[in-house]
Amino acid sequence: MTEQTKPRRPRLDLQVLGPIIALAVLIVIGALMNENFLGYGNITNVLSRSAFIGIIAVGMTFVITAGGLDLSVGSMAAFIAGCMILAMNALVPMMGTGWSTIFAGMAIALALGLVAGLANGLLITRARIEAFIVTLGTMGIFRSLVTWLADGGTISLDFTLRGVYRPMYYGGILGVSWPIIVFAVVAIAGEIAMRHTSFGRHCAAIGSNEQVARYSAIPVDRVRAWTYVLLGILVGIATIMYVPRLGSASSSTGVLWELEAIAAVIIGGTMLKGGFGRVWGTVVGVLILGLIDNLLNLTDLVSPYLNGAIQGVIIILAVVLQRQKKAER
């Protein structure tokens, strides 16, 4: 016991610094390579784009901390976006092209997210099927459903409605765009929930040892199901921010979002096998992923064919940095 507490301070610092160092290095490289990198426009672009994955990744942090996994979020986002657009288009004749229609659409998106998350959660906790398999299944289901709804093409939002809804992505308060604000609020709420509520502590307890958690009278199944419901609702929120950007959804919407969200969570220092979660780390992870893409587009250093390789190297490096510090314990 004493051995573990003694070197605690330096270990914690180094481990915490890993993703931050990676982020700082990226920012410095970016600033050196292109003078527009730190400009207001570029920062807004990168943060707004990262918001979808970011909002989802915060929810994913809880799922992974509790020892679960959700592969269905990207397809779920596409499915919710498709349903939301179809519903709003259908409501136009009744409710007109105003904010009331859009609010109805948002409510539908949140409700669908909740139901989809609950379906995942119940299948995992009640039917006792592995999370990987359940969400792999629902991933295929949601993806096919949106392709079917779109008849293989693209579902587009009513043109006038799109004009009304558009500021939800491009507009904001005091120059900070809405997706960034929502992402920040979600991240802060997530950080508080993870650190200062029994829900957060229960997630960590379940992820680290399910049996012990059960003996400690933690309602394991209920908490676990709730992590998926929470994630589903956050996917709904991300979709609400996504739809006004291009006003359309198709089968190519949200492809690989699940992997980006999981990667962001792991880069941020949450353990893939559960038991420990760090929401602010996830935020750093999301920013790292967003900046890599941005940097590769802003510079001509590497052939575009190699973009994927650079991303892979940086993701692995960011995690290696932490793992090495951990080995020093």
């Binding site: 292109n34 527009n36 990198f37 400009g39 426009g41 570029n42 672009n45 784009r49 950007r245 291009l246 359309s248 198709s250 190519s252 919407t253 492809v255 893409d293 941005n294 587009n297 802003l298 001509d300 575009p304 973009n307």
Partner: peptide, 23 residues
């Protein structure tokens, strides 16, 4: 001036174009 892969995808090309415009 510049060429990048937008992968025949709306979202990808939106992001690439934003970066071209900054650059």
């Amino acid at each position: 001036l510049d060429m990048e892969h937008g992968n025949w995808n709306r979202d990808d090309s939106f992001e690439v174009m934003q970066d071209f415009l900054s650059k």
